[in-house]
Amino acid sequence: MSVKVLRVINRDRCIGCYSCMYACTRQLRGLGGTSKSAMRVRAYSGVEGTFSIRVCARCEEPDCAEACPTGALKTAPGGGVLLNREKCIHCGACVKTCAITALQWDEEEKIPIPCIHCGQCVRYCPNGVLALTDRQGPKEGDGHAK
């Protein structure tokens, strides 16, 4: 079975419009803003126009799930994680352990926002920075942690 994985394939083309984060919040949650987005773009200080994009790596053995003390975050089929809200004790251990700071935190509800690799952010990126790729062979692109 081929597994879809969201990847940053053209980081250098990012213009910092945040359309991806707005799309995630709008399309999946029916809300305005960026704060419910499962991925993030951030501007770096000092260098005009340099953006870093953090997206879930859809790990097959996710550190975040391993860090969860209650089993609220479980490995999803094909990798990545699913959240069982009822079990979440809002400790934030999952977010802290994600070395690439891709797992986002919902500041209002105090819960993680797992990416479901649906590709809505890809659809609204005007410059082809993101792609939904098939996980086969070695990872492509210039990576998610840059």
Partner: peptide, 8 residues
């Protein structure tokens, strides 16, 4: 580059 929420 872009302003926040401007894909232009």
């Amino acid at each position: 580059t872009a302003c926040a929420h401007c894909p232009c």
